[in-house]
Write a protein that binds this DNA or RNA. Structure first.
Length: 394
RNA sequence: GCGCCGGUGACGGAGUGGUCAAUCGUACUUGACUGUAAAUCAAGCGCCCAUCGGGCUACGCAGGUUCGAAUCCUGCCCGGCGCACCA
């Protein structure tokens, strides 16, 4: 393990886009004082991807140095809901969703942080108690002009897109969180810059020392666009080993370095020297291995690497370990119905399309007729599309 | 509150009474080529049945006119712009 000074140096440098009051933070870290380090998360989706994990790993570094992590669940902010949802019923549903999301969230975060040492708070605890008067007091801290400096507001303003009054209160809600938990440091991605800085101002207003702010870069998706679940270019930390490995292999070559730096723990010098002498494919295999290792352990990573090799590189379906698919092997069955059984398609029309396109094969044989009937044997392999494989079970 | 413009598929954006399940671009899926990379080429891209083909549901919501509506009319909801308001 590196020296404490080394750890601090790394903490302040790797994947860090900007630090506000850098010297102050550096001094605080060296002072030996136990800092309260805040991260706010909105439980909006069910899965956490490796892009969002960047900041969690940063927290882990703080944790390893003995500081107190304070995780704030934005249950109150999320409850208020999106401005485009006008239905009165919405908040009730959201409350349920939030609870469901939280159940899956914390275990995922637990893959990165030591939850026993983490303070988990919900911001409804204090935001729910504020009076209208309190809110006005908070609102007084900022001017419209300051709010409009924010890029996404400015852009929307320019494009005649709506900006709700409520949205303007987001920074003050989040900033007040810092007051409530007496944060010394807050982390976030560059998209959070405005909110993070708002926290400083609000703390000062309430007579607290402004938190230092550490901003991490945003990880791009595997295809080079912004990482987003709707784009399908994400690798989730709870994804199965195989899936993580495969998704990493689908990464664009030019992003390999960035991914090594942002999503793995591999020492910078180590991966840089390797990268220059290896082919992109080899580098990616190493990268994929590291990613899986991080979330599933070394044994799983080794296994995933091997599986990938047999299935995709050697294209040896027969030798690979595949998920079983239960099919009646005694009667003949339509190709269409077999594909439906796999549940990789959302409709029969889609299944027909896939079949007609020649993307379904049993063993080495391509099956192009949706309504052709066949008797399929136990142990045979089935491939549907590019990446769905099964082994027939009785 | 008044006036004007607009709300179309994942997104952008055509279409302004039948030939519209809806031009086109992007994204996406699949095939070929490959390194499950990129680029390129090709096909597909509402749902259901099907061999050609047929049926159903859709163009903010609800009604109406018509043989026939995404297209016309009425009401409602939502967005933008302008006016008014600004003691």
């Amino acid at each position: 393990m590196a020296s404490k000074a080394g750890q601090i140096e790394r903490l302040l440098a790797r994947n860090v886009e900007e630090i506000v009051e850098r010297d102050h933070l550096a001094a605080a870290l060296r002072s030996g004082k136990k800092l309260r380090v805040k991260l706010g998360i909105d439980p909006t989706g069910a899965k956490i991807h490796i892009g969002r994990a960047v900041v969690l790993w940063k927290l882990r570094e703080f944790q390893d140095l003995g500081h107190q992590i304070v995780l704030i669940i934005g249950d109150y902010t999320a409850l208020i809901g999106d401005p485009s949802d006008k239905l009165a019923k919405r908040p009730m549903l959201a409350e349920k969703d939030i609870k469901a999301n939280l159940k899956t969230y914390l275990p995922q975060i637990g893959k990165i942080l030591d939850m026993k040492k983490t303070e988990v708070r919900h911001n409804s605890e204090w935001l729910g108690k504020l009076s209208f008067r309190d809110v006005l007091d908070l609102a007084e801290i900022f001017t419209i002009q300051q709010m409009m400096e924010r890029e996404n507001f400015r852009e929307r303003w320019a494009n005649h897109k709506s900006i709700s009054l409520r949205e303007l209160t987001y920074p003050i809600m989040q900033g007040y969180d810092s007051v409530a938990v007496k944060a010394d440091v807050e982390l976030g991605g560059t998209d959070q810059t405005f909110n993070l800085l708002a926290g400083r101002k609000i703390q000062a207003h309430y007579g607290q020392n402004p938190q230092d702010v550490l901003i991490t870069g945003m990880l791009v998706g595997t295809d080079g666009r912004k990482m987003s679940t709707t784009w399908g270019n994400v690798i989730n930390i709870a994804d199965a080993p195989q899936e993580q490995f495969g998704k990493t292999m689908a990464l664009r070559d030019e992003l390999i370095a960035e991914y090594f730096q942002c999503v793995t723990n591999v020492d910078e010098k180590a991966w840089k020297s390797e990268l220059t002498k290896e082919s992109p494919k080899l580098s990616k295999q190493r990268l994929a291995f590291e990613v899986v290792k991080l979330y599933h352990g070394e044994a799983a990573a080794k296994k995933a690497a091997k599986e990938w090799e047999t299935l995709f590189s050697k294209k040896d379906m027969a030798a690979a370990e595949l998920p079983p698919l239960k099919i009646n092997t005694r009667e003949d069955i339509r190709v269409l119905d077999i594909v439906m059984k796999t549940e990789v398609v959302s409709s029969k029309s889609e299944a027909r399309r896939l079949i007609s396109a020649g993307s379904v094969r049993v063993g080495d044989e391509v099956l192009k007729d949706p309504s052709a009937k066949l008797i399929i044997k136990e142990g045979e392999t089935l491939k549907v599309g590019k990446r769905h494989f099964f082994r027939i079970a009785a």
